[in-house]
Amino acid sequence: MSIRLNPYLNFHGNAREALEFYHSVLGGSLDLMRYDSIPGMMGGDDEAEKIMHGQLETEDGLTIMAADYPASMAEAPDASTGGNSISVSGDDAARIRAAWQGLAAGADIVEPFERAPWGDTFGMLRDRFGVPWMFSLAPQPEEADAG
């Protein structure tokens, strides 16, 4: 048995662009299902190309799911509204630094990715889609020894 917890992001028409960007940065496998894959399920005919469900799975266990709201939900808050963040943490320095650098392209850097008072390397950004991210890299052995 297993259980997972992962973010599910909602967008107003740019879920494909966001997921393809995350895929280019994080790698893995991306599956996209458009509204028109199940006729009559979501939105009107003019919304056929919107993403009903998208899922990015990486080899190291990261999962991000996302979808576009139909026009009937134009007032619903999307992933850029705030009140949440995607958090990436661990001790794989190369992987976490690469994810930070990739997602920082076109992002608003809220907190630079640097050594924090508690010892981790920590940073926060709002990516080009307005989605907030937090990164925390555990101290590396050489950093812990020097500390």
Rank of each mutant, 00 (worst) to 15 (best):
A105R: 13
A98P: 09
A15R: 02
A104E: 01
A104T: 10
I51C: 04
E114S: 12
M124G: 12
G130K: 06
D46E: 14
D31Y: 11
A98V: 03
S87C: 14
R128Q: 15
F113W: 07
P7I: 09
D92H: 07
R95W: 12
A93G: 06
M52C: 01
D36A: 12
S136A: 13
A79E: 00
R34P: 06
F113R: 05
D91F: 11
E111P: 04
V88D: 00
Y69K: 02
G82W: 06
R95S: 12
D68H: 02
D46P: 04
S29T: 14
G106T: 04
F113P: 05
L32R: 05
T121R: 01
G130Q: 02
A105M: 13
E75Q: 14
M41V: 10
I86S: 08
R95A: 13
L5R: 03
H23W: 11
M124V: 13
F135E: 01
F129I: 07
D127V: 10
A66I: 07
P139G: 08
I109S: 04
I51R: 00
T121W: 09
E114V: 15
L56R: 06
A98Q: 11
P39G: 08
M52R: 09
Y22W: 00
G82A: 09
P132N: 15
R97I: 10
S37W: 05
P39W: 02
G28K: 10
G44F: 03
I64F: 02
L30E: 01
L103V: 11
P7E: 06
P7S: 01
N6Q: 13
G28R: 06
L103A: 04
A79Y: 08
P117G: 07
A48C: 00
M124C: 14
D36W: 10
D60N: 14
P139L: 07
W133T: 07
P112G: 01
Y35W: 00
